[in-house]
Nucleic acid binder design. Sequence first.
RNA 1: CGGGGCGUAGCUCAGCUUGGCUAGAGCGCCUGCUUGGGGAGCAGGAAGUCGUCGGUUCAAAUCCGGCCGCCCCGACCA
Length: 509
Amino acid sequence: MAQPATAITPTRSENYAEWYQQVVRAADLAENSPVRGCMVIKPWGYAIWEGVQRVLDGMFKDTGHKNAYFPLFIPVSFLEKEAAHVDGFAKECAVVTHHRLQAGPDGKLVPAGELEEPLVVRPTSETIIGATYAKWVQSYRDLPLLINQWANVVRWEMRTRLFLRTAEFLWQEGHTAHATKEEAVEETMKMLGVYAAFAEGWMAMPVIQGRKTDGERFPGAVDTYCIEAMMQDRKALQAGTSHFLGQNFAKASEIQVLDAAGARQFAWTTSWGVSTRLVGAMIMTHADDDGLVLPPRLAPAHVVIIPVIHKPEDADAITKYTQELARALKQQSFDGRPVQVELDTRDMRGGDKAWNWIKKGVPVRVEVGPRDMAQDSVFMARRDRAHKEKVAVKREAFVAGIAALLQEIQDGLFARAAALAKEHTRRVDSKEEFERFFTAPKVAENEPTPIHGGFALAHFCGDPAVEASVKETLGVTVRCIPFDGDNEPGKCVITGLPSKKRVIWAKSY
RNA sequence: CGGGGCGUAGCUCAGCUUGGCUAGAGCGCCUGCUUGGGGAGCAGGAAGUCGUCGGUUCAAAUCCGGCCGCCCCGACCA
C-alpha cells in the first residue's frame, strides 16, 4: 500500500493539534484510559518521565532537598484555610465522601459509610504539608526545611489532552520553609534556575524565566515565577513554576518558630513543581512530521541496532556482530552514564522496524547487514536529519564517536528550537500591530486555525482588567515579565499608560 | 456547565434516509508461499449480543423514547 510522505498525518502545518495526538500514539507514549480525562502512560512514555525524574531528583538532592511523601487525601477544612487558595482550586477538586461500598437493591455497589468530613484528592499539597510542617518546627534552628515529593495529583479538568492537561497527572512538588523572607526568595529563584537548567540542558528546550502577572499567579502565592517555552505552533507553554508564598501558608497552617530573640515568627515558605506536562513540551518542541524526536540526554535509548538478515546463513554472523556492537556501545559513556542501546531482534520486516524507531524518536539508528559486516562498518541514520540520509561508518569509529555524536544532536536540537523561538519573538509597539500579530489568517469554518503569532515583547501597564480584556478578545495573555531584556520604560501597547518594562504576550497552552 | 456531532470487528469507518437473505470494507492480527538495505505482494483464516435499557413491528444496526459513554467548539486550567 502506498504510504504517505510523512509518518504522521496530518502534518504540523496541516493540523497541529491532531498532529500532536498522532505523535503520542505513533510513538506509543500514552493512551486514553477508561476513566475520563485520565491517561495510561505506556512504557516508552514512562521511560521518558523516568529520565526527567532521575535528572531532576539528582538536582534537588544536590541543592539540599530530601524526598518525603504526604497523603493523597486532604481534609476539606485544610483547603479552606487559605482564602485565595480555595478560590483557585475548589472548582476542580475530586471529593471523597464515603469510605465503603455495599450492595444496593439491584446488585450494584453503592457508597456507604459517609465521612464526617469530606476529603479532597490533592490538587496540590501546600495545605497538608503546611499542617505537617507546623508540627515539625519549633525553633528557627529547625529551618530551613527542604522537602520534595514525587506524587500524582488530581485537577478535575473539563477538557484534557494527553500529557498537556489530564485530570490526574504525575509531578514533583517541592515545599520549603525558611526563617527569613530573603532566604525563601532565594530558594524560589534557585529552584526556578534548576528548572531552567534542566529544560535547556536536558530537554534542549529554550525557556524564558520570569515572573507571573497578578492575574496568572498561583492561588495563595505572593509571587509566582515560571519558565515559558515556545512550542512549534508558536504558542507558549508554562513548563515549570516556582512560588514565593510569603507567610500566607505559614499563617494559614501556623508554621511558627521562636527566633533567636525568643519571639514567635511565622516561617516563609516556597513551593515549586514540574509535571508530566514536560513530556508534552518535549514533543511539541522537537517532534517532526515523522514522529517523536528525543533529545539524547533524556532518550530511553540512544542507539537502536537493526540487524538486516535476508539469508538464513547470514543470521548467526550478523547476530554475533550486532551483539558485539551493542556491547561495545554500552561500554561507551554519554552524559555520565553508559550509552543506552536497543538491539531490535523482533521478527518483523526491516522497514517496519526502522519506521517504528523513527516514530519513537531514538536519536541514532544503525542497520547492520552482510555488506556492512563485510566492511566492518555500520549504516547509520540520525533522527535529527532526514530519514533517507544514511551513511556507512566504520564500526570502530562509530563506537568511539557515539558520545560526541549524541552531544552534537543534543546541541543541534537546542539550537534549532532556539532559532524558532527567536524567529517568532518580536517587539510590538502599537495596538494595531499587536492585533495583527495575533490574528490568524482566515480559513473555512471547519479548518484548523493556521499556525501564527508567537511571542510579542510589548509594554504593559499592569492592570489585570486590561490583561483580562486582551484574553477575552484575542486569546492572548501575559506569559511572564521576563528577568532578561532591557528595562527601558515605555507605553502600554493597549492603554498607552506608562510601563516600566516589556512583558511577553502570547497564546498559550 | 452551554452549543454541535458520534457510538457497528483490535483500529478507522460503510450500511440506517425507504425496517427484510448468513451485517460489510480497509488497516491490524494468524497461517503459507513469494519477496527482501526500507513502512511489500498473493492466497487462505480468526474476529462483531451493531453502546445500553425499553417501545413499535411478523421482522430493528436501521424507526421512537430513556440512560450511559466519547469527540469537537466555548467557559476554566500546569
